[in-house]
Write a protein that binds this DNA or RNA. Structure first.
Lengths: 295, 295
DNA sequence: ATCGACTGATACCTTTTCGGTATGGCCTAC
DNA sequence: GTAGGCCATACCGAAAAGGTATCAGTCGAT
């Protein structure tokens, strides 16, 4: 190596004091080793940085130029540990957060506002993924936190219930069911064409609805995975669809949302999900900041 | 000191290889001292930068952040000596150049163009100063090079004749002298009101003209120091003035320039002037670049 | 001109640090 | 379970750093 940070400190001190003795005192050392430091630095850099004619010390033009660089290096050298400590404490940081498209309409905005106001130094990187993708990315370390729906493997993941909401039936506003003045029951749907969740791509909703409402799979006319798609099809009069309550926020025209009687009042769950072995120091802070959003 | 550049190199190597053995090989050393370097670095920074669980090495978030800073420091550490060497060789550099206002109209532009095309890496800082101020600033080290008029102290300064030019008489274009079809002689001016150079502020021109043209000091109506001022006064019909030939470039309206017979054909000299003890490595290169501008 | 004070460089010694070799502990893979 | 891979530790010799004492050159006062 050509030179050391110690030598740079010595050089900057001498350049500022223009006096080896005073510079040495400032560095809490004696003058001879400082002289040697400067000599080694000069031989390392390959250029005379200081003119010293036994009475007066001055910077050469090369020394002036090098001084600027030396100060830059020392400034970084001083600030870098503090930066690392802040990152390590979770004060600064990056959290890669995934969400399902359905949560976009509901809690995601509130969650991000909360984080921005409570942890402005923590940067949130957003990814839209279905639950299955989130689980894989979290396990692979490509993600820090997910907004996903159960079930999860408790060996690998920790989770907290973040939000629960009712299941509603979306119908066209001129549909006869929209005229009923009472919560629906399964029997009301016995002949209705159903826009249903794909068993593969939206397993959570599929399993949930099947367990909550005894529907006739023979009525299913479309199997899709996105809530938005369902609402478009409902609006087009293709059938009726089960959607989480937060879908009402989307505001698709000519769609009405009807209550359904379910064994559990708000059966649709959204969880915060993160890998147990996460080493991201910002994650605990993020979780703490989101604590009071949870029910 | 908290840590050394050597440790940073070690850390960057390990961060890039994610393997102590390979990193050590890249650094041409063995693995144990590298492990110690990293340990010392971590204790100096106060934070764990690497997670190493006996099978797999990975960066902590703090390590990621610190790696960026480490790379910045090393990049500067590598480039700084080259920069200093370029400055030292005069390849890069700053030359503080002073000029008299009169030279602005003549050679200064050519000189700067020459330098810009030949030494684009040398920055020229410009100062307008009369000769006396230039001499003081050069001696004090506040200036590297002057464009000035003799005489100079050869003990302290070195100089090269850069340019010489004729002395002309500036008159209003409706002045009767403008109608003459021959060079003027002193006798022509015997009754003309003179706008003359200040003996204090423009000593060079004062002495030069007094030695070249026997003028009657009784005819002096104004004593000023700037050529521009003289031309304004001539244009206003206040009198006639001796000016260097380059003044014709200024283009003041209603001023004509007439030849004068002088013992020396082009008596007005402009010199490059620099202190003998100058340590600016760019100065010799600048002088060399200007070599062929000289007569 | 001489002397003393001051400043940076050098000589020399002691302590610290650094890199190398040998080895230990732990995990993974077969 | 054993072999191989990997990082950490222990220990040693060499290099380097810092300290004290001193030298050499310069400036200012007498």
């Amino acid at each position: 190596m050509a030179y050391t940070l110690e030598q740079l400190r010595g050089f900057v001190a001498v350049a500022e004091e223009l006096h080896f003795g005073r510079a040495a005192a400032r560095l809490r050392m004696t003058q001879p080793p400082l002289s040697r430091q400067i000599q080694k630095l000069e031989s390392g850099v390959g250029v005379h940085l200081l003119d010293r004619d036994n009475r007066r010390v001055s910077l050469t033009p090369a020394g002036e130029a090098f001084l600027v660089e030396a100060r830059r290096m020392l400034a970084i050298a001083e600030s870098a540990p503090e930066l690392a400590q802040r990152v390590s404490s979770g004060y600064y940081g990056l959290v890669r957060l995934a969400f399902t498209s359905a949560s976009t309409f509901g809690i995601l905005g509130r969650l991000l506002n909360e984080l921005e106001s409570r942890l402005p130094e923590v940067h949130i990187e957003l990814f839209e993924m279905v639950t299955r993708e989130q689980v894989a990315a979290l396990a692979a370390g490509d993600l820090d936190l997910g907004l996903a729906r159960p079930p999860f493997d408790p060996e690998l993941f920790e989770s907290r219930l973040l939000h629960r909401e009712a299941l509603l039936l979306a119908v066209r506003d001129d549909h006869w069911l929209a005229g009923l003045d009472r919560p629906l029951v399964a029997a009301d749907l016995i002949r209705e064409p159903l826009i249903f969740h794909s068993q593969q791509k939206a397993r959570y909703f599929y399993d949930l609805i099947v367990s909550m409402v005894p529907v006739d799979q023979g009525n299913v006319v479309h199997a899709v995975s996105q809530v938005m798609t369902m609402l478009s099809l409902v609006s087009a009069g293709r059938g009726v669809a089960f959607v989480p309550a937060s879908a009402t926020r989307i505001g698709v025209p000519h769609v009405a949302y009807l209550e359904i009687l379910t064994p559990i009042e708000e059966p649709v769950e959204l969880h915060l999900l993160w890998p147990r072995q996460s080493r991201n120091p910002a994650l605990p802070r993020v979780l703490a900041a989101l604590e009071h959003l949870m029910p």
